[in-house]
């Protein structure tokens, strides 16, 4: 772990996606980088979505497809002129298919410093019942 902590970060260009549906508003759409991990009780998703405000995030879970969408307003004022542009800003969009049943009522999302943390608690499974076969 200490090895990864000291490594130098490499700049990455945000991956742009082309959505199947045509957009009504023009502009680039990016896929946020995510970490997904699972414990016994829940699946947690962390997504880097810099520039998105909590009210502009849209999380949707429908028929096991989890959609993350975020709108980013251009941080620049209209009278600012570009000198150097290394990254673009735009929407974020990413979808995942979940294999586990998720308890929709307990989904929790939190946005902090441009990182979205989404907790998806699994539906509690019924305790397995052992069926005894009676010998007739």
């Amino acid at each position: 772990m200490s090895n990864s902590e000291t490594k130098t970060l490499q700049a990455k260009v945000k991956r742009q996606v082309s959505t199947s549906a045509e957009q009504t508003r023009p502009g680039p759409t990016f896929t946020p980088a995510v970490d997904i991990f699972e414990t016994e009780t829940e699946i947690t998703l962390l997504a880097d979505m810099p520039g998105v405000k909590a009210k502009d995030i849209d999380i949707d879970l429908h028929e096991n497809v989890l959609s993350l969408a975020g709108e980013v307003k251009s941080p620049e004022a209209s009278n600012e002129k570009d000198i150097l542009r290394e990254y673009q800003t735009g929407k974020y969009f990413r979808q995942f298919t979940l294999s586990e049943a998720i308890d929709q009522s307990k989904i929790n999302a939190e946005l902090k410093d441009g990182v979205l943390r989404l907790s998806l608690p699994k539906v509690e499974k019924a305790t397995p019942r052992k069926i005894m076969v009676k010998a007739g």
Binding site: A11, V13, D82, I83, L84, E86, Y87
Partner: peptide, 8 residues
């Protein structure tokens, strides 16, 4: 890293 935008 990080990528930057510079405006004026």
């Amino acid at each position: 890293f990080p990528l930057i935008n510079v405006t004026e």
